[in-house]
Amino acid sequence: MSMDDLYQEIILDHYRKPHNRAPSLDGEAVHVHHSNPLCGDEMDLRIRVADGHLDAVVFDGEGCSISQASASAMTDATTGRELKDALDLAEDFRLMMHGEGPSRPDDLGDGIAFTGVAQFPVRVKCALLGWMALKDAIETHERGANAHTVTHEE
């Protein structure tokens, strides 16, 4: 495998200087904690909701560069979107990780740089961690709850 196929420069940029990385969020609606025990990736994701839109999305955690960079790109791509629209985009990213699509490449923003991860099955979970945490956070909000913890098994 080639390191450059996996680690696009955009990914390394997000890894080195993550966007919307914060340990707390004022006015947080939901906080979810997701982990990927195989790799030791840990992710705290917090969202603030206003008028049916994602008013703010922040993450914190530790893990490999792919998981952290993907979460960073995800926050950029989803902040400001309607909840349903963000869920739809998360599904588009998930399908991309399984070698399909994406059908909304422009909306994924820097998330599109993760296309190559689909060739590395063991790293797909890393790239998906932030997106799956977002999906869970939105669904948790829609259930009327405010916290949820999920461990992703292999």
Partner: peptide, 19 residues
């Protein structure tokens, strides 16, 4: 992160375990 160390080593034919 160890996964990134392992990926770099793997790309050079060096098989180690991470996790």
């Amino acid at each position: 992160p160890p996964h990134d160390v392992g990926a770099m080593l793997g790309s050079r034919g060096v098989c180690v375990r991470v996790g």
